[in-house]
Simulated assay, not measured.
Amino acid sequence: MSTIVEARSLNKKVDLDNNKLHILKDVNLEIEEGEFVAVMGPSGSGKSTLLYNLSGMDRITSGSVKFKGSEIASLKEEELAQIRLNNMGFIFQDINLLKNLSLIDNVMFPALVSKNADKNVINQKAKKLLEMTGIEKLAENNITQGSGGQLQRVAICRALIHEPDILFGDEPTGALDSKSTAEIMAILAEINKKGTTVMLVTHDANVAAKTERVLFIVDGNLVAQKEMSKYDPKHDDSKKREESILKWLVENGL
Rank of each mutant, 00 (worst) to 15 (best):
D26F: 05
N100C: 10
N19G: 03
M40E: 08
I122W: 04
K47M: 01
T49Q: 01
I104T: 04
S48G: 11
N86T: 09
L21S: 06
G44S: 09
N28W: 00
I83F: 10
Y52C: 09
A38V: 07
S62A: 13
F109Q: 11
N106V: 06
R84T: 12
M57K: 06
N123T: 10
F36L: 06
K20G: 10
N86K: 14
I23A: 05
R59A: 13
L51N: 05
N106P: 04
G44F: 12
E78W: 07
L85T: 14
Q93Y: 03
L10R: 06
A117L: 07
L54I: 10
K68V: 00
N87C: 05
A38W: 10
I23E: 08
N11M: 00
D118E: 12
L129I: 05
F92N: 11
I72R: 00
I83E: 10
L21Y: 13
E71K: 15
S114Y: 13
N28D: 15
K12Y: 12
D118P: 09
V14H: 14
K20Q: 14
L112N: 01
K127Y: 08
L112Y: 07
K20A: 12
E77F: 02
M108T: 03
F36K: 06
F67G: 06
S64I: 13
G34L: 14
K115F: 12
L10Y: 08
S9L: 00
V14P: 04
E32C: 13
N120V: 01
L112P: 09
V107A: 01
V14N: 12
E71H: 14
I91Q: 11
E30V: 14
E71S: 14
Q93R: 05
V27A: 01
L29T: 05
K115Q: 09
S64D: 11
A81P: 12
G34V: 12
V121K: 11
L80W: 01
P110D: 00
F92D: 01
G89Y: 01
E32R: 15
A111Q: 03
M108Y: 04
K125V: 02
G69L: 03
S43T: 11
V37H: 06
M108A: 03
G63N: 07
V39S: 03
S74N: 15
E79K: 08
E35S: 15
V39L: 13
L50N: 07
D105T: 05
L101T: 04
K115I: 05
M57H: 13
Q93H: 02
E33N: 15
M88D: 11
T49V: 12
I122A: 08
H22P: 00
F67M: 05
Q93I: 08
A126D: 02
K76Y: 14
R84F: 14
V65P: 07
T61D: 08
M57G: 09
P110H: 02
S45F: 02
L101W: 04
L112T: 02
L97N: 05
A38F: 08
L103H: 08
N123A: 04
N18D: 15
L54M: 13
E35N: 07
A117C: 02
N120I: 04
V65C: 07
P110V: 08
V107I: 03
L24T: 07
I60A: 13
L80A: 11
F67D: 03
G44W: 11
K125C: 00
F109G: 01
P110E: 06
H22V: 10
N87H: 15
N87W: 12
G89W: 02
D26E: 14
